[in-house]
Design a protein around this nucleic acid. Structure first.
Lengths: 208, 208, 208, 208
DNA sequence: GATGAATGAGAATTCATTCAT
DNA sequence: AATGAATGAATTCTCATTCAT
């Protein structure tokens, strides 16, 4: 697969990247709806308002579509997290920031995140590894924030599992959050999840 | 679709149900590995050591396979939860029991649970509704336990979201738990997750 | 490619091999007409009076069709040559026998031979090697006969090139022989080619 | 198809014909490698270092590429044969000259000749006829030389078949001649083939 | 003169399913 | 009860070609 090389800069005509982004957005929508395997190139083409073969001008195939979506998503998460954390030093506040960043990103790019959750194991070989690297970079960034919350002698193992559970809380919400009907704003939800993680359900209730 | 009627008792030859169970187990393994859409009946047949057309003796088609796996899974969760809770009255202990039950079930039926998480929205119409009903029954049972933890005036809305987050924590673990390598036992993990939910990360760390 | 393993015995239902042979005949006709690349599976299916997907019951794909035709052809040539040569010891007569065998085979299986000539370099890897081995076995058998014609100190290099030229004469005839119109019988043609090779054009003319 | 009209002079910009020749050379290489049907315009463009659509400035389409290559090849053979034969009157020497001319041409334009051998029947209608006319002109020229070798009462039928066999010998060599490895020079090969045709294998061996 | 974008037609192949046996 | 044969529909992808720029 030459998926990776395609990610490298290939200056093409102006507007090329815009249209490609448009295609990726449309694809994410379809993938989110019916999954990678359930999605047909025909449907993607329809969603992107392109001809079926037109897709292959922007992308080498279905796999590359998935790759670009996933890589881009995790890369954005890493980047935006770094930016959000600048100048924030209080450990609790750092966690709150990370959760808020995650949930906002989720809310604004629900389709993409869903694709990252559902079809994480679909890619293979180099493409899988490239996504995995970004994903781990993001996980480690959050893991470090969690670790710094309780510095005195908490094992890495403990904080690792806690981080994994935190991500469970955060990521699962695509399963129950229905943008249209829900009455919780993203920031409120993030605050609630931060509190739940930091102080637990009962403690939180006392203070709320 | 006549998926639902097929679930009703149709006494066939002796051993029929055993073989059907065997088929469902094999199917769950394949679905868990490559997803519903990615799975071919041929591969399922191979995994179940049946001929391709032999499958259609036990089941009306691919959709019914998914239906039976999902319905059975949520139904088992509801049933086993009820049995586990018998005689347990302390609210915290009831939650611990529920979590333990969930995680044990998860651990022993990882394939099926993964199929329930990944391909939740694949079924349609009656089959979807039937599964949804069992799923909600299970959710409500746990939701009630959560609600009873903080009886004085916590809004249903709050406890609902807390329950959803709890399920996120619990269900996400198929994404990171590698049966072979992990050093946490299921019960230890359940205990940790219960503590995390009840007292939060910091509180837990103090007492551990 | 699993092309080679498929050639191994796989006892299937009775009649399977008959139908497969029928398919191969039809395929050879199409390949001979428009070449391997120019042939569509649709057209092959039509020629074989099978549904498009029905082909895939007998054969793993287009490549295997080509492989089976070519392997079978060279294998038959080797086998029939051996049988024809039994009990023939005069060197000139042995050559005449070989040429006659070749041309008869050609005449009766024009399509297949054409496919062997035109699309010799299409197959790859193991399939190519397997065909090549049979092809070389056949070439060597004829080469040996040629070598035995002039035993006293003719270099292998000379006899090799002479054999190659002989095959040129023999094989090229699919380019000019039109079964319908031609007035030469296969055996007459073979005799003429043998004489040409052995004695040259002028010598032959003197005696004819 | 307007293939034929395009061959007529259409004075375009200076350098046009040079570039077109370059394109034809590149095309012949690709056609020789993978055949007409196996060749894609994309690959031809890459080989010619042109943009895909740039090809259509020089040529009306894929078919015309094949047409030009084949027509040009047979036309060159006719022309160069005529020139070579000037002043040569000995019948045997005339044949030797014709063979030498053919093999030299072959050696220097292996790709083109291969395309003429393999994809002879691909063109249709007018384009096919135009090539066929040149091809026949060439065949007849050689046929006449062969006929003159044994003037006294050899039937045209006999000499026709002998000529066809001669062409078999000559043309087949693209199947076995590997420019890199072979130790025979083109002229030596031509001499050997002339001798083989004139005196046969055994006679030749006596004198060599 | 040259090319990137775009596309309709068609390619090989796989799919879930049916049915005669 | 069980299965091999068969198929229509749909899959991803490539093709030669056109056209606006």
């Amino acid at each position: 697969m030459t998926v990776l090389t395609l990610h490298a800069e290939q200056k093409r005509s102006p507007g090329f990247d815009d249209k490609r982004l448009h295609l990726l957005k449309a694809t994410a929508k379809v993938f989110a709806d019916v999954g990678y395997d359930g999605a047909s190139m025909r449907r993607i083409a329809a969603e992107a308002e392109l001809s079926l073969s037109g897709i292959y001008h922007y992308v080498s195939g279905k796999e590359e579509l998935l790759y670009l979506i996933q890589y881009h998503t995790f890369d954005s998460l890493v980047t935006s997290l770094e930016r959000c954390l600048e100048g924030v030093s209080d450990p609790r506040e750092r966690l709150a920031t990370a959760v808020r960043n995650h949930i906002r990103h989720f809310g604004e790019n629900m389709h993409e995140l869903k694709v990252c959750a559902r079809d994480l194991e679909t890619l293979e070989d180099e493409a899988y590894e490239a996504v995995r690297e970004r994903r781990h970079a993001y996980f480690q960034a959050v893991h470090q924030i969690v670790g710094e919350l309780a510095p005195q002698g908490v094992s890495t193992h403990h904080s690792w599992i806690a981080t994994a559970n935190l991500f469970g809380m955060l990521n699962w919400f695509y399963q129950w959050y229905d943008a249209g009907r829900s009455k919780v704003s993203f920031d409120d939800l993030a605050a609630e999840q931060t509190a739940l993680f930091l102080d637990g359900y009962l403690a939180k209730e006392k203070t709320s």
